[in-house]
């Protein structure tokens, strides 16, 4: 593997109030131009990693340890303002729910071009041309009209295309896609997925793809990291993973893929040994207490 473009080292994110860790010493690497899948069940902390990179963690949590390296620069040690600009200039987010990710009281056009003009100091007409070009690339019919529309005048699938165009518009080095197809119709999901994979390949962007759908991962990613309870329990290449998952949880996760001819068989519980392994750590403080008493 070549030198990673994004490298997270021992990142720990905890609740401010109870100090309970939500991410436990997470490490992952993403090479330039590659796609890394980040999978795990709800609450495993997948999205939290993306938020930590982008600096949009909820107010109730904080980063308590670790490093985030992006293009040889450590993000967490940068002063807030500089970090904000750096992230704005070099990364982009494809959000989960296209229905809520566009500002309802502003036209589409400025929402795509604003980053180019305000943060990257492009000329207005250059930004406009770039936005039209990208809207064409994501196959939006009549992009001129769409630029002048308000979000409520556009369908959900189209809005996700717009958000994808907006993410790629500034030529970011890294794109974080946070379950970009979860909120969409099944028929639209596939198109959007193809679109993201296609644009990623064409622009050679590094992509961190957060999802709970292993099928999606197998289609777009080269590597994947499996998260459980805030820990990376397996990180491997995609082919190895599907052929030979090492961790028992990964095997259970694979077994949980729905089979249409036998739906009941996909209801596999989390293996006992995994619960024992991970939860022994989570509940350790309490277990100690119970010993004392």
């Amino acid at each position: 593997m070549m030198k990673p473009f994004l490298s997270i080292k021992n990142l720990t994110v905890s609740l401010k109030s109870s100090k309970e860790p939500l991410l436990r010493s997470v490490s992952l690497d993403l090479a330039a131009g590659n796609v890394l899948g980040l999978v795990g069940e709800s609450g495993a902390g997948k999205s939290m990693i993306g938020k930590a990179i982008l600096g949009i963690l909820p107010q109730a949590v904080e980063i308590t340890a670790g490093e985030i390296w992006l293009n040889d620069q450590e993000l967490l040690r940068k002063p807030a303002k500089e970090r904000r600009k750096f992230i704005g200039a070099s990364t982009a987010l494809i959000p989960q729910d296209p229905l809520t990710a566009l500002n309802p009281s502003r036209r589409i056009g400025p929402q795509i071009t604003e980053r180019l003009v305000d943060i990257l100091d492009w000329k207005k007409d250059a930004a406009l041309a770039r936005a039209l070009e990208l809207l064409n690339e994501v196959q939006i019919p009549d992009p001129e009209r769409v630029m002048h529309s308000y979000p409520h005048e556009i369908s959900g699938g189209m809005r996700q295309r717009i958000l994808i165009a907006s993410a790629f518009a500034a030529n970011p080095k890294l794109i974080i896609a946070d379950e970009p197809t979860t909120a969409l119709d099944v028929t639209v999901q596939k198109q959007i997925l193809h679109l993201i994979a296609d644009l990623q390949a064409r622009h050679q962007t590094s992509l961190l793809f957060v999802t709970h759908d292993l099928g999606v991962v197998s289609k777009v990613c080269q590597h994947l990291s499996v998260l459980y309870a805030g820990k990376v329990i397996e990180a491997s290449e995609i082919r190895d993973f599907f052929k030979n998952p090492k961790h028992p949880y990964s095997r259970a996760l694979l077994a949980a893929t729905p089979k249409y001819n036998d739906p009941a068989s996909s209801l596999t519980p989390v293996p006992e040994e995994v619960i024992a392994e991970v939860e022994a750590e989570i509940f350790a403080p309490r277990t100690e207490c119970s010993h004392v008493n």
Partner: peptide, 9 residues
Amino acid sequence: TLSRTKGYS
């Protein structure tokens, strides 16, 4: 949130 990730104050 999205606007924040774009680098705005």
